[in-house]
């Protein structure tokens, strides 16, 4: 189970270029959906990989579901060789992704993001429209409730139109 505040402040305080996506983003928009991990889309820029590596290193990141005795080196080199990392750490489960289905790579995801002031930091969060596009593109049945919630939130948030 992830410590949400700690995960976000950890990434932000290390100046990591990231966008919050997934269930935690849904919660920020008022969804009551409960998630147990946090998903970050991150930039593959070399400096950014180093910052991620340094930010999470004290929390012993390991690949989820892999045998405990399987060697795993956590450094920027490992990060440069993958596009999806599903990690377990001392502060909970963290998923790191370099791209999002339906949106593209980090730069595309960043373009679809908005900012929230969270815990003293300005944090990029995927927009409602971006989340809807990603969930539509994923085609996964488990995303349908989240999609319905997001569509309802988007519609409720529109305040320009005369309703009657």
């Amino acid at each position: 189970m992830i410590d949400v505040k700690r995960a976000i402040t950890l990434m932000a305080s290390h100046s990591v270029d990231f966008v919050v996506i997934g269930g935690v983003a849904l919660s920020l928009y008022s969804s009551a959906y409960v998630t147990y991990d946090i998903d970050f889309c991150f930039s593959r820029h070399r400096d950014n990989l180093r910052r991620i590596s340094e930010a999470l290193a004290p929390f012993n990141p390991r690949l989820r579901g892999f045998p405990k005795d399987l060697p795993f080196i956590w450094d920027e080199g490992s990060l440069s060789h993958g596009s999806v990392f599903t990690l377990e750490t001392y502060i909970g489960e963290i998923d790191l992704l370099t791209e999002v289905t339906g949106l593209g790579v980090y730069a595309d995801v960043l373009n679809e993001s908005v900012t929230f002031d969270l815990f003293g930091f300005v944090v990029n969060v995927l927009s409602i429209d971006g989340l809807i596009r990603a969930k539509n593109a994923s085609g996964r049945e488990k995303d349908i409730p989240g999609l319905r919630i997001l569509e309802a939130i988007r519609e409720a948030s529109l305040d320009e139109e005369d309703e009657y």
């Binding site: 949400v4 935690v24 920020l28 008022s30 009551a32 409960v34 929230f116 919630i149």
Partner: peptide, 18 residues
């Protein structure tokens, strides 16, 4: 539940999630 959460700040929504 959405209505309840609409009344909260983003940080409060994350606290509730936690």
């Amino acid at each position: 539940l959405l209505v309840e959460n609409f009344r909260l700040t983003p940080e409060q929504r994350l606290e509730k999630l936690q």
